[in-house]
């Protein structure tokens, strides 16, 4: 009799794991993306990457059609990221010295999904999972399963009422976690106080690339170039071109600089396995391609580089 009851529920269980229809998937994705920007909240989350674990505080408040946010590392070196519609900066404190740098992007948990999140449904199958509890709040697991080998998978947990991601786990092709973000404490609706940010007083650290010396013959499907600037890299003299390709969720950087000597082709991988990198020579340039992406995506960008004729 017990077996018979179990069989009755089998079709329901199978249905729960099926990918959502495209429309429904887009709605879930957009709801999660919007809530991360349009809601006021303040909380503390834990970030885990391989053997490393860090605790950070985050605060967000909507301002007009955009939002302002503040991310602060609570352990290790004192670092803070401030984001407004006008731009983002990193503030680093080392004893009495405070250093500020402009950032190219202000992307951080829980605001991980792009503004046009619905388009991600082209590249990921979206599945709803079980109801869970994170930071004392109920949430629904939303799984983003990549449809090809060019991106990692994600498991998000969307807060029951607002859709705000309370947890985000980036997983590899075997479903093993690579990086994890999870709120430990969260106040929804709290309006955090934000000090004014002196963005306009700060020198520009990047300027658009004047003339392109290389071309990428084939990007992985769904990826597009979202930035191409000339900038100085931390602790490295001289200007380097920094291009960024993205599908909205995964980001791959290309760095181009003059090669003073023949470049050895090097392939790299981070210990947890989330970052891949390849350095090679393209004409008279050294090209370094790296991203929080599976090897085939980084490889396709790097091997598709050619000198522009």
């Amino acid at each position: 009799m017990r077996t018979a009851w179990f069989l009755l529920f089998l079709p329901l269980a199978a249905q729960a794991a099926d990918p959502l229809p495209a429309g429904e998937a887009a709605v879930w994705l957009q709801r999660m993306a919007d809530s991360a920007r349009r809601m006021s909240y303040e909380g503390v989350f834990v970030f885990r990457n391989g053997p490393e674990m860090h605790t950070l505080s985050v605060a967000n408040r909507p301002v007009g059609q955009s939002s302002e946010s503040r991310l602060k590392a609570l352990d290790g070196m004192q670092r803070e990221v401030r984001c407004t519609q006008a731009g983002a900066i990193t503030v680093m404190s080392d004893g009495a010295q405070v250093r500020m740098e402009k950032r190219l992007s202000g992307r951080h948990f829980p605001d991980l999904l792009p503004a046009n999140a619905a388009s991600l449904a082209n590249w990921y199958a979206v599945k709803l999972g079980e109801t869970a509890r994170v930071a004392g709040l109920d949430c629904t697991e939303v799984e983003l399963v990549p449809k090809d080998v060019f991106r990692w998978g994600y498991i998000l947990c969307a807060e029951k009422n607002s859709g705000l991601p309370l947890k985000a786990v980036m997983v590899n092709e075997a479903g093993l976690p690579l990086t994890q973000f999870s709120f430990a404490e969260l106040k929804l609706g709290a309006t955090p106080r934000m000090d004014p940010m002196p963005l306009s007083d700060m020198p520009e650290t990047a300027r658009p690339v004047a003339s392109e010396r290389v071309t990428v013959t084939a990007l992985p499907p769904g990826y597009a170039r979202i930035a191409a600037v000339s900038r100085q890299l931390p602790n490295k003299p001289g200007q380097v071109e920094h291009w960024v390709f993205s599908d909205g969720l995964t980001h791959i950087s290309l760095f181009l600089e003059h090669a003073a000597k023949p470049v050895e082709t090097m392939k790299g991988q981070s210990r947890p396995g989330d970052i891949h990198m390849l350095t090679r020579q393209v004409g008279s340039l050294q090209a370094t391609v790296l991203g929080n992406a599976p090897w085939p995506a980084v490889e396709q960008v790097a091997m598709g580089l050619e000198v522009r004729k």
């Binding site: 860090h54 950070l56 992307r107 951080h108 948990f109 931390p234 950087s253």
Partner: peptide, 12 residues
């Protein structure tokens, strides 16, 4: 390169 890429890599 890793430090510069962090502008897009979700964390500080």
């Amino acid at each position: 390169y890793l430090a510069a890429h962090q502008d897009y890599a979700q964390a500080v």
